[in-house]
């Protein structure tokens, strides 16, 4: 019942967003229908656009988990961007360490390094909250800035690749350790990793005693205390898992897309992931589909801007609109009579 409700509310949010976006482009003097068509063209109409959509979706799945998993325990973590960056930098360092190692060993090591770095990064925010009373939303927001600043420091100094003049970047990982495309479709292996991690975490959260305990904690911390659950440990684990997912996104951005750490890691995957997490209502399986839809929005952005000569910020306007409407639509849960045949909720 509830998942039907979620789908319906999300669909309505999308439709309202598209309508408002239509008004926005109309004020800029374009026919909204043409714009919608190009959105479709750039995201799902052709193989190449689908590939680009999925390439964008891969990191989104993982960064969405960075918000979704801690949210199940009752935390609002928005540190996906920072965890991704930290994960990317750690991946480069790990790549330097294992140069010359066999492919599988090297890639596994780099991925684990990225995940570990991202996991510790967010777990740190979790520890600050549990042991020092620091609000996790603020700390993860600030940690994003810190992560980005640290990366810039490293790629402009200690880790800078001086050979590359046009683009400031870190050293590149060895070519032999670069990850390629999936079979059949030209999308990197990060997509498979994203889907697998989402499915694993779905099982962990829905089918294990750990996931049940986390739901109790998120649902009512006082009940969790009364049941004697190890709350600190659960919060740290959730933060670690979420951060590790985002760190893994950073790892694949390095090993499969860029080959090095640079400002290209800071393109907003972390923030778009928050949106995906909200849309999915913290359900890791739903994240897979919603990340693909949001990946489509990102993929068609460039085409949209070029075709209609729209301002650069246009896709951000679209995403921002969607975010606000999704947040507003959260108020609709439990209020629509259609979905509550028994009664509407009482306070």
């Amino acid at each position: 019942m509830n998942s039907v409700e979620a789908v319906a509310i999300n669909a309505a949010a999308f439709v309202i967003t598209l309508a408002l976006f239509g008004i926005y482009v109309a004020t800029l003097g374009h026919n909204p229908l043409d714009v919608y068509y190009v959105l479709w063209l750039g995201s799902f109409a052709r193989q190449i656009s689908i590939e680009s959509t999925l390439t964008n979706a891969a990191p989104l799945m993982l960064t969405a988990l960075c918000t979704a998993i801690p949210a199940r325990a009752g935390l609002l973590v928005i540190g996906g961007e920072g965890a991704l960056v930290v994960g990317g930098v750690a991946t480069v360092l790990a790549g330097m360490l294992v140069a010359g190692a066999p492919f599988l060993v090297g890639v596994t090591f780099m991925s684990l390094a990225g995940a570990l770095a991202g996991g510790l990064w967010i777990a740190f925010a979790g520890a600050l909250r549990q042991y020092r009373g620091v609000n996790e939303t603020i700390s993860t927001l600030l940690l994003n800035y810190i992560a980005i600043a640290v990366m810039y420091h490293l790629i402009t100094g200690p880790m800078r690749d001086w050979e590359r003049v046009l683009k400031t970047s870190s050293w590149s990982i060895p070519d032999a350790l670069r990850v390629g495309a999936l079979p059949v479709i030209d999308v990197h292996w990060g997509l498979a990793a994203g889907i697998v991690v989402c499915l694993i975490l779905y099982v962990v959260m829905r089918r294990t005693t750990f996931g049940f305990g986390v739901d109790v904690l998120g649902g009512n911390p006082r009940a969790a205390q009364m049941a004697g659950l190890p709350i600190n440990r659960m919060v740290l684990i959730c933060c670690f898992m979420g951060g590790a997912a985002a760190g893994l996104a950073g790892a694949f951005e390095v090993t499969a897309v860029h080959g090095f750490a640079s400002e290209s890691l800071v393109v907003g995957f972390g923030y778009a992931g928050i949106l995906v997490a909200f849309l999915s209502r913290q359900n890791p399986a739903a994240i897979i589909f919603l990340a693909i839809i949001l990946g489509g929005v990102a993929a068609s952005g460039g085409l949209l801007q070029r075709r209609f000569d729209l301002p650069d910020a246009t896709t951000q306007v679209l995403q921002g609109l969607l975010f606000m409407i999704v947040l507003a639509s959260n108020a609709a849960y439990g209020r629509l009579n259609v979905f509550q045949p028994a009664a509407w909720r009482t306070a």
Binding site: D215, V216, G219, N220, R222, A223, M226
Partner: peptide, 13 residues
């Protein structure tokens, strides 16, 4: 405890 819905139960479960 007193007020069991708030202190000992999880709403939504």
């Amino acid at each position: 405890p007193e007020a069991p819905l708030d202190n000992a139960c999880v709403r939504g479960m």
